[in-house]
């Protein structure tokens, strides 16, 4: 087991190193000079050079790469070119919006998907099943930003129940914050809930066909009891895997929704940073997200290996 963890750990490290090189390299060749952007069209060349020196952009790419990586190892993501504040602080601040948004969306998606998926599975082949599956098909097919636009039209512009965008800050109270996150969370949750409901249904159907389920039914349990006591637990593995994947997707994939609703989260930070050529912020946030995904994958692998010893040999 230790050996398995060690090999996985080393490949994790290699992945991280490659990811950092890819990200840095890609951002290095992005056209557009941060200093020139900040100083605008009337700036003189010597002013731009002075600012480049001040930002540390005159060092060689290799030196900057190592400075960046060694900083990250100690938790220092550098200083934003445009805002002149530590990137770590900026990320922490934005996480206070992105993280709750992702969590609310995930909670919504799970709350919708579980009962719906279970219902569809237990009434497999019925009208209910067909209708539910039809809706989930629709949910998967609707682009979330379009759904968001329609919700803004209905709930923000016409009914005025919610503001169309922006975030008042958690200082204005929990209610105000949650209210601002409601429409974005729903737009994010809709396709995720549809996917999850489909996974839930098919995982349940798979387990319903297993021998132990037949035994359970033979013991005299009703279908509902059998599902609750036995099938659900067994269907949980694929479902939890999807939930894990969805969480990292929601964290990084909220970019467009954050833009539609104008939420100052991580996604909009990246968008803004790219257009302002605040490259150090772009690098660090992308790296952080990649790091999160790689570590989650690693944790899932290890968890599987703990549960199922056969998997270890595969490594």
């Amino acid at each position: 087991m230790t050996r398995y963890i060690l090999t996985r750990l080393s490949s994790l490290l290699i992945s991280l190193v490659i990811a950092s090189i890819v990200i840095f390299g890609l951002i290095e060749i992005i056209p557009g000079d941060p200093a020139a952007f900040m100083l605008g069209i009337n700036a003189q060349e010597d002013t731009i050079d002075a600012l480049r020196a001040e930002l540390g952009l005159d060092a060689s790419p290799i030196a900057r790469y190592f400075a960046w990586v060694s900083g990250m190892v100690t938790g220092d993501f550098g200083t934003s070119y445009t805002y002149r504040t530590p990137v770590t602080e900026m990320i922490a601040e934005r996480l206070w919006i992105s993280l709750p948004l992702a969590l609310i969306a995930l909670a919504l998606s799970t709350l919708i998907a579980f009962p719906v998926g279970i219902l569809a599975a237990s009434k497999r082949g019925s009208i209910t099943d067909t209708v539910i599956m039809g809706f989930t098909q629709l949910g998967v097919a609707i682009p979330n930003f379009w759904f968001a636009m329609l919700m803004v039209l209905v709930f923000a512009i016409n009914l005025r129940w919610f503001s169309a965008g922006g975030f008042p800050g958690w200082d204005d109270g929990l209610f105000a914050g949650l209210k601002a996150l409601t429409l974005p969370a729903i737009s994010l949750a809709l396709p995720q809930a549809s996917i999850l409901a489909r996974v839930m249904r098919s995982a349940l159907i798979d387990t319903l066909d297993e021998d132990f389920m037949r035994t359970a039914r033979a013991k005299g349990l009703t279908q509902r009891q059998a599902i609750r006591r036995h099938a659900l637990r067994n269907a949980m593995i694929p479902v939890l895997t999807i939930i894990g994947l969805q969480f990292s997707f929601l964290l990084a994939g909220a970019i467009i929704i954050e833009n539609v609703f104008f939420l100052p989260g991580l996604g909009r930070l990246i968008f803004q940073a790219i257009s302002q050529r605040d490259l150090i912020v772009v690098e660090s946030v992308v790296m952080l997200l990649v790091f999160a995904v790689i570590v989650v994958n690693f944790a899932v692998d290890i968890a599987y290996a703990l549960v199922d010893p056969r998997l270890r040999r595969k490594a």
Binding site: A19, I27, I30, S248, A252, V290, I294, N297
Partner: peptide, 16 residues
């Protein structure tokens, strides 16, 4: 494959 999967796809598309 794992590495490509780890990159948030939309983000990379934006970077590209």
């Amino acid at each position: 494959n794992d590495l490509v999967f780890a990159f948030p796809s939309l983000l990379i598309a934006i970077l590209i």
